[in-house]
Design a protein around this nucleic acid. Structure first.
Lengths: 205, 205
DNA sequence: CTTTAAGCGGACCGGACGGTCAGGTTAGGT
DNA sequence: ACCTAACCTGACCGTCCGGTCCGCTTAAAG
């Protein structure tokens, strides 16, 4: 998680309260919630927020990082699974589910990654895990040969972003589209795909 | 387009300038650009903007409506095309291309539709066209039987939203994912799809 | 040309936001 | 018990935004 060592007891406690409140508030209302609101929810003063995170972006980055790290852990665990195809699908479901439940993740992940080095790093590590899972699925002919890890991450982002606004009203809608997309990865329909120039390493839709 | 009758000559001219500037500015910088910026680009005063559109949302709605109307026209024309499969794909390409080139369309289409009646109407008419095109494709077995017009609109939105932030850096990336998605619609892989409760008629991701 | 109402524009307002700071508070070592 | 540095706080600042308003301009009818 996030470093709390070397902090005074009250500071460490406030940091926890702050991170929890921020995560909840970002998830419910998106990345545009005001710092004051978050501070109020955490039950601390506004100034305290800026003592822990110099800028709003850094706070966002910290919350993002925790979530991404969780997903990376899930991906790593799934690398040991027996069925590569099921593992890849489960990874995609996990990723989409994470984003569906968090409005902020569906917005500015990309722009934050561009300015905050740690988010960028986590994103790159996530990409590696996605590529590893995809490679396993490719080798067993579970998905078409020209599908990459980048494709997976991007497609999961696509489904999440599109269905998130309806996510509350139509529960499970995103699962439909995730499965529809997964069907498109099937090797039985090997229609040629346009191959664009390589994606810059810092993607994160 | 937008009504200009009954206006004084200068008013009509300014309205054109305003709509053009707003469309360009929204497309380039998203729906969050300030009214002052748009006014400056149009070469008119800020107050004049509010004379023509009482609120920022109404201006956004007017710009949106023009674009959506264009897409509806394209869809209607494609209903006459010989090959239903190619027609549907072309419709999807048109929709995605429209959104890729316009940052604002990838953001708040849904929220605007919720508050502005005219956008809501246009969106519904667009949905009808999408459904008609999809029905034709379904009848000729060009796509799987359980795909709806809503699916098409939502999937196009998904691809657009996910690739738009990279759209400038990696041209043509969205085409790759649109084709990948289209492969998923192929009837050859008729894996069962989760069927969520019906989507509320006002969708527009 | 005169008249008049429609149109124009930019100073202005209220409010929200991110971020700062001076002054009070407290944890925790000695 | 005491001291000090770390910490907390909320009033405050500058900025920007959407929206209003009123004095000036101008199209265009008679």
């Amino acid at each position: 998680m996030t470093a709390t060592s070397g902090l005074r007891a009250d500071a460490a406690r406030n940091r926890r309260l702050l991170l929890d409140a921020a995560a909840a508030e970002f998830a419910e209302h998106g990345a545009d919630v005001s710092i004051s609101r978050i501070a109020a929810r955490a039950g601390i003063g506004k100034g305290t927020v800026f003592r822990h995170f110099a800028t709003k972006e850094r706070l966002l980055a910290a919350v993002f990082n925790d979530r991404i790290e969780d997903l990376i852990a899930t991906g790593r665990r799934l690398l040991e699974a027996a069925d590569p195809r099921a593992a890849l699908l489960e990874f995609m479901v996990a990723g989409a589910g994470l984003r569906i439940g968090d409005r902020s993740l569906c917005q500015s992940a990309a722009s934050i990654a561009r300015t905050e080095a740690d988010v960028r790093d986590a994103t790159l590590r996530l990409a590696e895990v996605a590529e590893a899972l995809t490679a396993r699925a490719r080798e067993t002919r579970a998905v078409r040969a020209d599908v990459t890890g980048h494709d997976i991450v991007l497609l999961v982002g696509a489904v999440s972003q599109a269905t998130a606004p309806l996510g509350d009203a139509v529960p499970g809608l995103w699962r439909r589209y995730l499965h529809l997309m997964f069907a498109g990865l099937d090797p039985s329909v090997e229609t040629p795909l346009p191959v664009p120039p390589p994606v810059p390493a810092d993607f994160a839709p």
